[in-house]
Design a protein around this nucleic acid. Structure first.
Length: 454
RNA sequence: GCUCCUAUCGUCUAGCCUGGCCUAGGACACCGGCUUUUCAAGCCGAGAACCCGGGUUCGAAUCCCGGUGGGAGCACCA
């Protein structure tokens, strides 16, 4: 797994991490974390922190220390010198402007843009370091997901390796990393397919063995293009903070572009590790469908204990502000709203009436065609019934039994105004459940409050 | 433009390799019903797809050929 710290942990990168992780653990192999920061260096430390946080949140652990390309410059230098010495690489003296002009004219001639350097044997000693590409036979490799792939190496030209001895470029650095870190499987996004022939050429030139390649289908936005910022939230942190559960996110990403063949869709991380296979990875890109993630998140939320939910709330940074109260009380509230939740972030807004007096429009108290007198009568009745109940037997079973017996054939006449008086909302759990949590005194107080409003 | 990848309901997918069990299965979403004071949850149900054209075959979603659509890559980014 090798994310680049040029930004926060991207959803696509997270999915690649998940697949790498699942495969490595499935095979009982090692899974390492390598930060590709040759260009950014140490200055962007917070991006690395974001990546690490994101992976930890997902429950992905790696073997050994994190390796950073910025700390391996000496190693790259050694190999770049080797290529230079063996006359497999050279300094290209052309300026960026010249190169740009060449590119444009090639495009104009409807040719694939590339640079075959006319100074490759001139032994210059400054400029961009390029690979002396003399390959002419097709480069063929087996992709674990797509089968045999082949490319014409001539189209690559003399591709670039490094800006100078101590500033390697991506394709060169990864090849050195893969070999020196003994990477057996390179599992990455489909957008890297066209980098593979360059890397193979370099592996051959350096005498390295070839890893197994597997290219994952891309995650697409709703318009079928590669998922990016304009499609909405693409950073893992954003999903964490709006209250997606890591298990749900992990599960969802794992079955996006892969499935085990059966009809089950909800899997624990352990199950996924056990059944994962590269063979069953999809070839075509998959649209990131947030509504299915929402559903799955709801499933996971319903499967959690209130204690676990309140811990997730804390981790996601979702707070109830100054209304925060005893955790025991909060947990009761959570149980009540659990079946209604898709995202944890909905919780504070949905349950605010448990922490403060509800605010609502008097008109909301009206059930169907009731007039003010009827509403008032209904609420008075409810209040008297509540007053008749002892503190001890003030629980939802008792209350429900009482009220259902008392209510006429249209239960709404008694129950709707009561529920609104308690919650101030047009949608909420039943009044009995609410009252049990609110308690006798507060319940009566709210019913009285509603009566006063009319 | 060039190169490469890819194609089953709106979306994610099963089936394809090893043709017949496919009247194409599941899930999400949508719609309807049950339950219900409301909203959810739950249960039941409906609609919805083999990209197109040829071929091979008794028989093709599955095999072959040709189109078309979609995507990605073509940096002194990673």
């Amino acid at each position: 797994m090798a994310p680049s710290p040029t930004g926060f942990l991207h959803v696509g990168t997270a999915r690649t991490a998940i697949f790498n992780f699942l495969y490595a653990r499935h095979m009982g192999g090692e899974f390492i974390l390598r930060i590709e920061d040759t260009d950014v260096g140490r200055s962007e430390k917070h991006f690395e922190e974001d990546i690490v946080d994101g992976l930890k949140w997902l429950g992905i652990d790696w073997d050994g220390e994190i390796t950073r390309q910025s700390e391996r410059i000496d190693i790259y230098e050694k190999y770049i010198k080797k290529l230079l010495d063996e006359d497999k690489a050279f300094y290209c003296p052309h300026s960026e402007e010249e190169l740009e002009r060449e590119r444009k004219s090639q495009l104009w001639d409807k040719k694939s843009p590339r640079h075959v350097c006319d100074a490759r044997d001139k032994k210059a000693n400054t400029g961009l370091i390029r690979f002396k590409n003399d390959a002419f036979e097709d480069i063929t490799f087996t992709d674990e997901i797509r089968g045999e792939l082949s490319f014409d190496p001539q189209l690559l030209g003399d591709f670039s390796l490094a800006k100078d001895l101590r500033t390697p470029l991506y394709n060169f650095a990864v090849v050195v990393d893969d070999a020196t870190m003994e990477i057996s499987h390179v599992i990455r996004g489909e957008d890297h397919i066209s980098n593979t022939p360059k890397q193979i050429l370099l592996e051959n030139a350096l005498g390295f063995s070839r890893p197994v390649f597997a290219h994952l289908p891309l995650i697409l936005g709703s318009d079928r293009s590669k998922l990016s910022k304009r499609h909405g939230a693409t950073s893992l942190t954003e999903y964490k903070h709006v209250g997606y559960l890591p298990e749900a996110f992990f599960n969802f990403m794992a079955i996006l572009g892969w499935n085990p063949g059966g009809e089950q869709e909800i899997f624990s991380k352990e199950e996924l590790i056990k059944i994962f296979s590269l063979e069953r990875v999809q070839k075509a890109g998959a649209i990131f469908d947030i509504t299915k993630l929402d559903w799955m998140n709801g499933e996971y939320i319903r499967g959690k204990s209130p204690k676990e939910i309140s811990e997730c709330l804390k981790e996601a940074g979702i707070s109830f502000g100054s209304r925060a109260s005893k955790s025991e009380y909060l947990e009761k509230v959570i149980v009540l709203e659990q079946p209604r939740l898709k995202k944890l972030s909905e919780l504070p807004e949905k349950t605010d009436y448990f922490f403060k007096e509800p605010e609502y429009d008097v008109a909301l108290l009206k059930w169907k065609q009731m007039n003010n007198n009827q509403i008032k009568f209904s609420l008075e009745t409810a209040k008297e019934m509540l007053q008749a109940v002892s503190e001890k037997s003030f629980n939802k079973e008792n209350l429900e039994k009482m009220f259902l017996e008392k209510a006429g054939k249209d239960r709404g006449e008694l129950l709707w105004p009561l529920r609104v008086a308690l919650s101030g909302k047009k949608a909420s759990p039943s009044p009995f459940e609410i009252m049990e949590i609110l308690g006798r005194e507060e319940s009566i107080k709210r019913v009285q409050g509603a009566i006063n409003k009319i």
